[in-house]
Design a protein around this nucleic acid. Structure first.
Lengths: 323, 323
DNA sequence: ATGAAAGCGCTAACAT
DNA sequence: ATGTTAGCGCTTTCAT
């Protein structure tokens, strides 16, 4: 920048003004400075600029893995861009230590805030950062041990949609296989499913199978559901991974039992039968996250809000099989 | 940091030493400083640190979209972490302007370098940055108008694998549908396919269909291939999107024609028949990219290298259908 | 082993 | 409309 100033024969401050598009620079000076910038290939140092000016205009996205598909990020990125914010993503690998590393790295970079998909436990470490002005929005799952703005899917409503859809197609024996109840979404969805069974006056016994997503466990759950004197004629799966595991386990049996999966995915329509799913409102979730984020920046002391985004049932075939 | 120093009753420099794990600090001082840090919840400002010390230890990944799955990034992230580098990802949206914005943003943050999946054209703008020390590694496609280290898949070899696999299963009439030839990989793969046809002494006429990935175009290509007096009995698709589009277009006809897709994907085994693919060596590509990156940092003036990573044919059923 | 002073590249505040 | 000065939070250099 000093070089540019010398090259253009102006003061440092004038170069700064040109770089920042300050209107109070005479056109003659402006073009002289611009030429010097081009000639020297000058690029302002964002770190120095931020250091001095305070703001960073950057929002960190702490997600499971930057290598994975992440539909919510599409809306986050787009909305953020429109607000003049830059989004950078880092991986948490769904690991407490990694998450903390990623978040701390974001804090040390003094990002304006973070949008985080929290792992299971222990977000107390966020409190000091929040106190010193970090805007935090959690999505998909709530953060634990700390109060932050949150965007969640209507997990219980989604399960209810799936259950009622199957019931409407004549099913009485409907089973559930899903994620571990130690995980927030796994818990919510399993609870909601038990509620559905109870509300329908059907026994819960042997019909609800939350747990780790492992081939053996899934296989055993399937056997329980489909064996016995009064086997399940329909299954609801609790998340994407479970859905895939169940379809794999069913093998050529896929299509014999009605199936509705929680979470939509790109190739669901290519399966035979095409998969009926409960789709989460990814775009709405992302949009809301940025909205909460910006309103938090504007009003740091307002009470935290939790927004629930509704789900949609997408009927494609597998959920419309009759008993 | 001033506060910490005052709180601990030491000089600024001593706090700095403790933060950086300098061994030349007396244990008494060290613990006093550490306590002050904890009490005040002090977090060093990464920007200031970088500004003063020069290096950033950060590597930018400019990929199509941070919301999309990106297998190569898994290896990039892991290898980088082992090398003590932080990876942050930003979206290019396969758009020239966006790419440049993302890369410039990385430059202004003075990242040590970038790993980029280049869009179609015009990477001359990278030259000044490279001259001033930015390490650049391109992957998947080469950068244009500028010489940088590059990791590519063996596109031609992969197409050959697909063709020969189908030929070995008795097919003589093998067609190709793929991406636009204006895109590097689309071009390479179409060329390779024509070479295969020529080498086999089969006419190229009407068998090779590169172009935009649009339903109408794909449908027309399929009709050309499957119509006429001597229809194709097997098809090779040139990338993931084309594969999906072709399977959608085939509808219930999927499984009637042998099919091998370029690019593997998570649910290929759930299709019926399961999809035979040519898989790229994503892990190897990512690993190599970081390797080139680090060797570039160590030796900025070495000549550029281009590494080609071989592909693997994964037989699952759709490619083993006989004519 | 510890401290004082200088300065990384930039912008905010205050001249002129 | 332009220039001058100070200082963001840290590390480096040089003393002690």
């Amino acid at each position: 920048m000093v070089d540019v100033a010398r090259e253009a024969g102006v003061a440092l401050r004038t170069v700064s003004r040109v770089v920042n598009g300050d209107a109070t620079v005479g056109p003659a000076f402006a073009s002289r400075v611009q030429q010097a910038i081009d000639r020297l290939g000058y690029q302002p140092d964002e770190r120095a600029r931020q250091l001095r000016s305070g703001r960073t205009g950057t929002i960190g996205a702490a997600v499971r893995h930057i290598a994975d598909a992440h539909p919510v990020l599409r809306a986050v990125d787009e909305e953020a861009r429109e607000a003049g914010l830059t989004v950078v993503a880092m991986s948490t690998e769904d690991d407490e230590v990694r998450e903390r590393e990623a978040v701390m790295s974001m804090c040390r970079r003094r990002m304006d805030g973070i949008i985080i998909e929290p792992i299971a436990d222990g977000h107390q470490y966020l409190q000091p950062e929040i106190d010193s002005g970090l805007a935090v929005v959690a999505f998909d799952r709530p953060a634990t041990g700390v109060e932050v703005d949150t965007v969640l899917s209507d997990n219980r409503g989604g399960i209810r949609q799936a259950f009622e859809h199957l019931a409407a197609h004549g099913h009485r024996r409907i089973g559930y296989i899903g994620d571990d109840e130690r995980i927030y979404t796994g818990r919510e969805r399993a609870i909601a499913f038990r509620d559905c069974l109870n509300a329908a006056g059907v026994g819960v016994e042997g019909m609800v199978h939350p747990g780790p997503i492992e081939t053996a466990r899934i296989g055993a759950a399937l056997e329980t559901l489909r064996g016995g004197p009064d086997p399940a004629t329909a299954i609801v799966t609790g998340n994407f991974s479970t859905t895939v595991a169940v379809i794999r386990a069913l093998g050529s049996g896929y299509g014999g039992t009605a199936l509705v999966g929680f979470d939509d995915f790109g190739l669901a329509d290519l399966l035979r039968p095409a998969l009926t799913v409960v789709a989460q409102g990814d775009t709405e979730i992302g949009r809301t996250a940025i909205e909460l984020f910006r309103s938090r920046l504007a009003e740091p002391d307002r009470p935290v809000r939790t927004v629930t985004v509704s789900t949609t049932l997408v009927a494609r075939g597998s959920g419309e099989i009759r008993p």
